[in-house]
Amino acid sequence: MKILVGVKRVVDFNVRIQVKADGSGVTTDGVKMSMNPFDEIAVEEALRIKEAGNAEEVIVVTIGPKAAQEQLRTALAMGADRAIHVETDDEIQPLTAARILQALAEKEAPKLVLLGKQAIDDDNNQTAQMLGALSHWPQATFASEVEIEGDKATVIREVDAGLETLSVDLPAVISADLRLNEPRYVKLPDIMKAKRKPLETVTVEELGVEHVAAVKVLKTAAPAKREAGIIVESVDELVAALKEKGLI
């Protein structure tokens, strides 16, 4: 079987986000960009499924500008077999991303689509579920353990109440949570090898995906800042301060 993995280029998780003074967005010029951390975990999981003999091919896909090919190369260096770049300079929202992934899934017929649970730029946490709905496939979101047995997957999900286990028929879409695995480091020779792996480019139009009604961002603002607090010197001082506030 084939596994399709979604990989998004986002501002690196270590970057301190700066909101532009004119409210038009956050600063991305000269800022370090990386693969969305959840997608790295999704790629790693796909590779492990393949290495366990449960898949033949891992295809990574990104929807985004030319520069997003960098993240595809990283995924190829990790061990993915080939890459698809859906090239667009437009801002892609989850419903459109899901439609594009659906079109690719129809073309490639994967048994599994692995996505991150959320992209850490917009924190939407939607695409996997939307793809599940559009394709009429089962979904298992926020996965912390995935086991493939024939035509089924057993997935442990991280939910507010604890850990939930679902069994789903394949094809299915699964979204990766942080504790699913620890992604491997890429080694230099793998980066060299990745340069020769196939990377195909398509446009949104070629996939036959139309523009859908989108959410419009009116402005971007910095969050309210918390007032700076004080350093207390002792437990007694802390207790007195909390008592004064009526908290204990």
Binding site: I17, V19, I120, V215, K216, L218, T220, A221, A222, P223
Partner: peptide, 13 residues
């Protein structure tokens, strides 16, 4: 967005 480091005002279609 961005783990709460920015707040966007959005209009639904």
């Amino acid at each position: 967005v961005y783990a709460g480091n920015a707040i966007v005002t959005v209009e639904a279609p």
